[in-house]
């Protein structure tokens, strides 16, 4: 049993390693003192400062537009793509599969760089629109592999049984396909949404003036701004992510 104790200890240490910086950050956001190591009393002043910053509100608006549009478009493209990869086994699907898998592996900076040069070469002005194009491109792959995974686990004998029992195609769609495949669609969409909300590098390369998103705003605040305000912003971000994670977990464990 010595080996089991070793793996247990490493697991605990890794979890501490994962949560240490996050705890430090949250604690600091309520610290009245500017510097992390001295506790200057409990304070909400950094939160007040945060909510009165107009740049942040603008970037939140941009972030939501980008995430909303790119999630919807990539869900359509990704679902079609995942279905095609599942249904057909031709040579073209091998190419298709490679095209879907590569964006998952290549470093973000390459995708950002190539899209930037593509837009420059075509003389397309950088704007919120170019950011959205970039986000759709990486989100499609994530939706496609998620949908593909659900389809591979899907029991098609249920459909055959329904057909044998005389169900119409529209009834099969409503009673079988949609309820059984929608968790896959939803988790693919949630993945696309969180990735889009989180993306910094590809946005950094493809954003034009006035199309700053929240991650870009956070980056410039970290580089040039007031650190305690970022602590406050991060804590709010953490709260939202914990909530999304819990919802995601519930969807995933339900079925």
């Amino acid at each position: 049993m010595r080996k089991d104790r070793f793996t247990f200890v490493v697991t605990i240490l890794v979890l501490i390693f994962f949560y240490l910086p996050i705890v430090v950050l949250v604690v600091n956001s309520f610290n009245a003192s500017r510097f992390g190591s001295v506790w200057g009393g409990f304070s909400l002043k950094w939160y007040e400062k945060l909510f009165s910053d107009e740049n942040i509100w603008d970037s939140i608006k941009n972030t939501l537009i980008v995430a909303g549009v790119s999630t919807s478009v990539s869900m359509v493209l990704g679902t079609l793509s995942g279905y095609a990869l599942f249904k057909f086994k031709s040579g073209i699907q091998k190419v298709h599969n490679t095209l879907i898998t590569l964006p998952l592996i290549i470093p973000d900076i390459l995708m950002g760089m190539s899209l930037l040069l593509f837009f420059i070469a075509l003389k397309i002005e950088l704007s919120l629109f170019t950011v959205i194009l970039g986000h759709i491109t990486f989100c499609v792959s994530y939706v496609a592999v998620t949908v593909l995974a659900r389809l591979q686990d899907f029991d098609f004998s249920v459909v055959e049984a329904a057909q044998d029992l005389g169900a119409s195609p529209s009834l099969i769609l409503r009673k079988i396909y949609i309820p059984l495949l929608s968790p896959g669609l939803i988790s693919g969409g949630m993945l696309a949404l969180t990735l889009s909300l989180d993306d910094f590098i590809i946005t950094f390369f493809t954003a034009g003036p006035g199309s700053s998103t929240l991650p870009l705003q956070i980056y410039s605040m970290i580089k040039f701004g007031t650190p305690p305000v970022i602590n406050a912003l991060s804590t709010i971000f953490l709260l939202i992510t914990f909530l999304i994670a819990l919802i995601y977990q519930r969807i995933n464990t339900k079925q």
Binding site: I22, P215, S234, L238
Partner: peptide, 11 residues
């Protein structure tokens, strides 16, 4: 699930 920049900043 937390923002990547925030994680780096936390360090």
């Amino acid at each position: 699930w937390t923002n990547f920049l925030i994680r780096v900043y936390a360090w």
